[in-house]
Write a protein that binds this DNA or RNA. Structure first.
Length: 674
DNA sequence: GATCCTCGAGTTCT
DNA sequence: CTCGAGGATC
């Protein structure tokens, strides 16, 4: 049965009106009707849709209630990566940032867009032909999770863009957050229903966004603010960042009203101070301000360094500090036997979380700060993450406060504690006798960047080691289901999951395996270098210190650590056992040794962007033939490889009369045609 | 021998 | 994130 024309028109009218009010409320922050009036319109539309189910449209404002739970989140790859920003903590750092920008752009004065830095979660929204089709979390910056159903429940995110001719494709970057008042009422509800309260709005928002059941998200009252554009197709690209944000606002997306175009360091510092004053009065929490070079052409010229843009910086507010008391100072034993003093603190709420522990790093550091048990101390979260004891309040020191002394013997295994004369750390000399070191070695072995055995966490390793069920990493590969049966809190299902993860880890890479061994001074980067250089584990194991030193970035100390590790019969045995259990990887030919390649002993410096090859690819090609790639030009440099937008290094090369190659020239050289 | 840079290792909380 | 140490460079 067709819906009467009049009803259809009525529904359209209501939807348009509700969307207009949403726009005024969320985007312009200037509601034109009372909440009661808005509710009345909303109810009327709901009723109409209820009476005429065929009216229901997924883009109707009534459809923001969430749907049934999904089994999991899909992974989404961002078309352009969502990078993080570098931080500045002082005026000096901001001045240095501005200076770098001016030098690179060769101008005297830069126009910036300044805005608050939201303490929320970065997300990306994709609109096709003006329709909201996908929303994703930032994730690691390259891939995130598809949270579209959850974001559909966020009322300030338009399901359709305003205007007659929306762009064919638009990817909007912005932040999801929770207003303080919504956070307070959420916690009130949690309290009332005897559920766990959230520590801060950020966590509540994060929890809300990661719900598999979007109906829960809908109940969290999340907000969204846009601050950038990832991809535009089918519309003119704005000339400046501020113009882009104005345009986003015209399209119906909420953009922060505190944003300002300012000039030079003075403008930046004025904005910083102003936001510091306004901070407490805002609806949402911010942890600093962001400055972006306003001209998009200039942004492009500035480009990126590793993972962060050179055209923007986050100027953070000073970390919040709090007072608390040192209840005890305990000692932890790390993978290498390092003894680390840790302060147990009376719980204190600082920077959005309750802190109970803080590392004191080592004996010297502890002495410098002179922290004693019973002391009253000032605590902050360094870089807003890791708790740190800033200072002791000396006036409040009780008479009985006890100074800490590093134990003479290991608190875990009783072995002697040794501190080498020119080292800062004291170490347990017990080696693998020490249960703490064995546990840490296993955790390292299983960690994500090593063998990546999911589910083999601290609790499980504690039990396995305490029961002597596992002594070495090789033992992991010889465990059956039965070994888990007697463990506490281990259901058969989760035991199977761990076994499966262990099984999966057998298929690995040489670099991961070398890293997993936990050789002293051999981290991820060195392990990769070793794998590339030797190509096979046997060749690595047979290498003497002399041969090891040929590997870039390996000097006498690291070479000694590696040789010593493989000289140990026990270590060789464990490796053999693992190989016998089926741990395997692909081996390759050893890379041409530096003294043999065509480019042996030649030093290269790369600058600018080459048309086809990436920096890493070029580096690999040069190193494959025994050449070296250095960071800066000096008299020792043999060639400079320059691409587009080459900078000071090219100038220096010309000054010193060093041959400069372009990509084609480099390729010819590599092929031996020169 | 001094200095810059990168890597390794240890750490917190959700 | 922060510190310390190792390596490379001048």
């Amino acid at each position: 049965m067709a819906v009467p024309k009049a009803v259809l028109a009525e529904a359209h009218k209501l939807r348009a009106e509700i969307e207009r009010h949403n726009y005024h409320y969320y985007v312009l922050d200037q509601p034109v009707v009372s909440d009661a009036e808005f509710d009345r319109l909303f109810c009327k539309l709901q009723q109409l849709e209820h009476e005429h189910p065929e009216l229901v449209d997924p883009e109707s404002p009534t459809q923001r209630v969430g749907g049934s739970p999904q089994p999991e989140f899909r992974q989404v790859t961002h078309r352009t990566p969502m990078l993080s920003l570098n931080n500045a903590f002082s005026e000096e750092e901001v001045m240095a940032f501005d200076r770098r920008v001016r030098e690179r752009l060769e101008v005297d004065r830069v126009e910036y867009l300044a805005e608050p830095k939201f303490d929320g979660l970065a997300i990306s929204l994709t609109y096709e032909q003006g329709r909201f089709i996908r929303g994703a979390t930032r994730g690691d910056g390259y891939t995130g999770e598809d949270v579209t159903p959850n974001l559909r429940t966020v009322r300030s995110i338009p399901l359709r863009l305003r205007g007659k001719a929306p762009p064919g494709l638009l990817e909007v970057r912005g932040e999801v957050l929770m207003y303080r008042r919504d956070f307070d009422s959420l916690n009130q509800r949690q309290r009332a229903s005897d559920e766990k309260e959230f520590a801060n709005p950020r966590n509540a928002a994060a929890g809300g966004l990661r719900q598999l059941d979007s109906r829960i998200t809908a109940a969290r009252a999340l907000r969204f603010f846009a601050y950038g554009v990832g991809v535009i197709e089918g519309a003119a690209v704005p000339a400046s960042h501020s113009a882009a944000e104005d345009w986003l606002q015209d399209l119906g997306l909420p953009v922060c009203q505190e944003r300002r175009v300012v000039h030079a360091v003075q403008g930046l510092m004025r904005f910083y101070q102003r936001m510091g004053e306004r901070r407490a009065g805002l609806h949402y929490e911010i942890d600093g301000v962001v400055y972006k070079v306003n001209s998009l052409a200039a942004q492009q010229r500035l480009g990126y360094v590793s993972r962060a843009p050179r055209f923007a910086i986050a100027h953070k507010f000073p970390a919040e500090e709090a007072n608390t008391e040192v209840l005890a100072i305990e000692v932890q034993v790390g993978r290498t036997g390092a003894l680390t003093p840790v302060a147990r603190l009376a719980p204190v709420f600082v920077g959005g979380v309750t802190v109970t522990n803080a590392t004191l790093h080592n004996e010297d550091e502890l002495q410098r700060k002179d922290v004693r048990v019973g002391d009253s101390v000032i605590v902050r979260r360094a870089g807003d993450v890791i708790p740190e004891v800033v200072a002791v309040v000396r006036d409040k020191r009780p008479k009985h406060a006890i100074a800490f002394k590093m134990p003479m013997t290991c608190p875990v295994c009783g072995s002697a504690v040794v501190r080498l004369p020119d080292e800062a750390v004291a170490r347990c000399s017990g080696g693998l006798i020490c249960a703490a070191q064995r546990k840490q070695a296993l955790l390292h072995f299983a960690s994500r960047r090593a063998m990546d055995i999911e589910g083999l966490g601290e609790k499980l390793v504690d039990q396995l080691v305490d029961r002597d069920a596992v002594k070495t990493a090789a033992d992991l590969y010889r465990m059956g289901l039965a070994a888990f049966a007697e463990l506490e809190r281990m259901a058969e299902k989760s035991a199977q999951n761990v076994l499966q993860a262990i099984e999966r880890s057998k298929n690995t890479t040489l670099a991961r395996f070398i890293f997993a061994l936990g050789i002293r001074n051999v981290g991820e980067a060195t392990a990769k270098e070793l794998a590339r250089h030797f190509g096979s584990l046997d060749r690595l194991m047979q290498a003497d210190e002399e041969a090891l030193r040929q590997v870039p970035d390996i000097g006498p100390v690291v070479a000694f650590s590696i040789a010593q590790f493989f000289a140990e019969a026990h270590n060789r045995e464990v490796i053999e056992q693992m190989r016998a259990c089926g741990v395997h990887w692909e081996e390759s030919e050893p890379r041409v040794a530096a003294s043999l390649g065509r480019l042996a002993g030649k030093a290269f410096v790369l600058t600018g962007t080459l048309p086809k090859l990436s920096r890493d690819e070029v580096k690999e090609l040069i190193e494959a033939q025994g050449g070296k790639v250095a960071g800066s030009v000096s008299r020792k440099t043999d060639y400079v490889v320059a691409g587009a937008e080459a900078g000071a290094k090219l100038a220096k090369a010309e000054e010193l009369g060093i041959p400069v190659l372009d990509e084609a020239g480099l390729l010819e050289l590599l092929k031996g045609k020169r």
